[in-house]
């Protein structure tokens, strides 16, 4: 396996690996977990790493700090070719200094070619810190990762001005390792393949003299999200009479929650008593300008349309292929909203 080759390379004195960048191999994914679960961006990174790995002819290595064997197995099911598990009790809860030490030592020894971190709480703090420690840099919040095969460098897409457009930047060939943070949600999730099997190597970490410098006093797991007024909401999921009943309406609420958006409705939904009148979109209600408006079981009468025509992107789910809303939607789905909405929630991974 390639690892042996790497060890051989590193073992031979006359091979100057540092200066030339030779000996830097494989794509590493730094798994991020919340308690004993992997955060979604970890799986998304594995998915993208697999694709890059096949182009590069490299392995996907995952490193898991403070987790256990079962979680390491999950990383394999989702695409890792090998997992390095640092299960030192001092790494159970996240603290920057021990985490940075463990990863810094591991990377100095293993010399990864590419390292992916999640642009979540932990990855965002650790990645630039490690980049500096290893004498390299990190490109952050990437939403696209491709390869410049000729140069063997990563080409990264980073959203500019909240996604109005993107900047595309490549690492210079002399940068090793190439480190990035990956924006959550940018890549799809891989298939969980329980037939995949691979090695889990437990690595000891030397945390002598390393003390966390930040003391956690208390953690509040969930804050009640303040409802955003509809006219300022970025994402709105809106229900119409076509949702059928209160149960159907609840699906719309669930989709809104999954997207971090607000719930609204047509007059039809208000008349059915599923939602308050102040949440009615249209001529007789609120005018909205979200980035995304998802109309579920709404016919799209002119009085409704006038309240949402300035939405930047409209999705409509409607059973009737001739419904007016489908003509003004960027993306129309003809089908039963009670089947389509649960499928969307599922696809979002929420």
């Amino acid at each position: 396996m390639d690892l042996d080759y790497l060890q051989m390379l590193m073992g031979e004195e006359e091979v100057v690996v540092e200066e030339k960048g030779e000996g830097y191999r494989n794509i590493w994914v730094v798994a991020e977990r919340a308690g004993d679960e992997l955060v979604p961006v970890t799986l998304e990174m594995l998915n993208q790493a697999r694709q890059l790995a096949s182009t590069l002819g490299a392995y996907v290595m995952a490193v898991l700090l403070g987790g256990d064997e079962a979680l390491a197995q999950e990383l394999i099911y989702y695409g890792a070719d090998k997992v390095f598990l640092c299960d030192d009790p001092a790494l159970k809860d996240y603290a920057l200094e021990p985490y940075a030490k463990a990863l810094g030592d591991l990377f100095a020894e293993k010399m990864p070619e590419i390292v992916l971190f999640g642009a979540a709480d932990v990855g965002s703090e650790l990645a630039p810190r490690l980049a500096r420690r290893l004498g390299t840099i990190v490109l952050t919040n990437c939403t696209g990762l491709t390869l410049d095969a000729a140069q063997r460098t990563l080409v990264c897409t980073m959203p500019a001005y909240g996604g109005e457009y993107s900047e595309v930047v490549a690492f210079s060939p002399e940068v090793h390792p190439q480190m990035v943070t990956v924006r959550p949600g940018a890549f799809g999730r891989p298939y969980r393949d329980e037939y995949r099997s691979a090695e889990v190597e437990t690595v000891a970490v030397d945390l002598d003299g390393v003390q966390p410098r930040v003391k956690v006093l208390n953690v509040v797991a969930q804050v009640e999200r303040e409802p955003v007024p509809l006219d300022k909401a970025r994402i709105i999921v809106s229900a119409g009479r076509g949702m059928g009943d209160a149960e159907g309406f609840a699906l719309v609420e669930k989709l809104a929650a999954a997207l971090g958006g607000e719930v609204a409705g047509s007059r039809g939904a208000v008349d059915e008593g599923w939602i308050d009148e102040e949440k009615q979109v249209g001529m007789g209600g609120v005018t909205v300008r979200p980035d995304l408006y998802i109309a579920c079981g709404i016919s799209g009468a002119i009085q409704h349309y006038l309240g949402m025509e300035e939405a930047k992107f409209v999705v409509a789910v409607n059973a009737d292929e001739n419904a007016p809303i489908l003509k003004v939607a960027d993306v129309g789905i003809v089908g039963d909203a009670k089947e389509v909405i649960p499928a969307i929630i599922e696809a979002l991974g929420a």
Partner: peptide
């Protein structure tokens, strides 16, 4: 510089009425 600019990428243009 340790990076090379490779230009910009733009989101797809808006086209109304696409059906899935």
């Amino acid at each position: 510089p340790l990076t090379q600019g490779r230009g910009r990428a733009f989101p797809p243009e808006r086209t109304l009425g696409e059906r899935l």
